[in-house]
Amino acid sequence: MIVTLIVFTVALILSLVFIYYAITEKDLLKAAVFSAGQSVSYAILLHTMAAPDIAMTYLAVSVGLYSALLVFVISKTERYEE
């Protein structure tokens, strides 16, 4: 139980750090990678809350599809934010 709570808290704070870097990063490609990192820590959160189905879907969609979608969209615009 205590291990689960520690993993939960660490993943939660890690996700906050990733969100902060994703928002402040000027290189959009790096920001997409940080966003994927945030999704990974959310997937860990969902798994500690005993929801493996949601964790699996979340990983496939938000790390795989969503990041790929962002990269495709960035390739159509400029890479660096002003």
Partner: peptide, 17 residues
């Protein structure tokens, strides 16, 4: 087991990406 059509399909679509 945990999983189903939607996660499986999303994972397969990643191969194309």
């Amino acid at each position: 087991t945990p999983g189903g059509g939607f996660p499986g399909g999303s994972a397969l679509a990643i191969t194309v990406m």
